[in-house]
């Protein structure tokens, strides 16, 4: 089948870059406000990667998933961290919400929340998705000594229709503002449109893809957060 260049991709790319830039430069004050906290002497900073198949590393061995790669990179930079992979393949925001209390109970220092892709794939109502993510963040941030919550920005695939996609994609920024959490890009056109970064299913990233996500979007901000937390 002929490949056609179409203007949607251009729009997505532009939107992503602009959004990424805004977030990257505009997220500073949230990081600046992070308070130092007591961390475990054995595990170091306890980070829980909480999400769906993109967190779990669907189709890959555990060490190739993004949480494992992030832990390696942070360790390389000299930080004492433990990144727990708590990804569940196929999970929707509703399932994620159900698990939030379980995650919160483990008292993490940082939670990386990457969820929503399956809602889009199953074309679940966007309002429902929004409500679920907000509730999840509320639970995570509840109680004493809450963790730093980082929301990872997802995108709906192109075939769900432009209307749905626009609403869905704008969701993350909205939630990040209303819930006052740090928003980092995760699934971007830049990484996603490169076939070399994906498994043959066309939807999940491979080891290289996750490495790019860690290198491009996660490692710097996470280093900064870890710095803040451990600066007692």
């Amino acid at each position: 089948m002929k490949k056609t260049i179409n203007f949607w991709i251009v729009i997505i790319a532009v939107v992503s870059v602009v959004a990424g830039a805004i977030l990257f430069f505009g997220g500073d004050d949230k990081i600046a406000n992070i308070e130092p906290r007591q961390v475990s002497t054995t595990e170091g900073v306890k980070i829980i990667a909480f999400g769906d198949s993109l967190t779990a590393g669907y189709g890959l061995p555990a060490n190739e998933s993004y949480p494992a790669q992030l832990e390696t990179e942070l360790t390389k930079r000299g930080y004492s961290v433990t990144v727990i992979n708590s990804g569940v393949s196929g999970e929707t925001t509703r399932g994620n919400l159900e698990r939030a209390a379980f995650i919160r109970k483990q008292n993490p220092d940082i939670v990386l929340l990457g969820i929503g892709g399956n809602d889009a794939l199953r074309l679940l109502p966007v309002e429902e998705t929004e409500k679920n993510i907000e509730e999840t963040i509320k639970i995570l941030k509840g109680g004493e000594n809450p963790p730093v919550v980082v929301l990872l920005r997802m995108q709906a695939p192109i075939n769900v229709g432009l209307g749905y996609k626009q609403t869905f994609d704008s969701l993350y920024e909205k939630i990040a503002q209303s819930q006052e959490v740090i928003l980092l890009p995760f699934l971007t056109a830049e990484v996603f449109l490169n076939q070399a970064n994906k498994l043959s299913d066309g939807i999940h990233l491979n080891k290289t893809g996750y490495k790019q996500v860690v290198d491009l979007y996660l490692i710097d901000t996470l280093s900064e957060i870890v710095e803040k937390i451990t600066k007692l």
Partner: peptide
């Protein structure tokens, strides 16, 4: 199938100008 079925002919699909490499198909 989770969803209702819709069938397009090849030429009709091409009119929509979807890039198939973006599809989880």
């Amino acid at each position: 199938r989770f969803l209702p079925r819709v069938i397009f002919g090849q030429s009709g699909f091409e009119r929509a100008s979807l890039d198939t490499s973006l599809l989880r198909a």
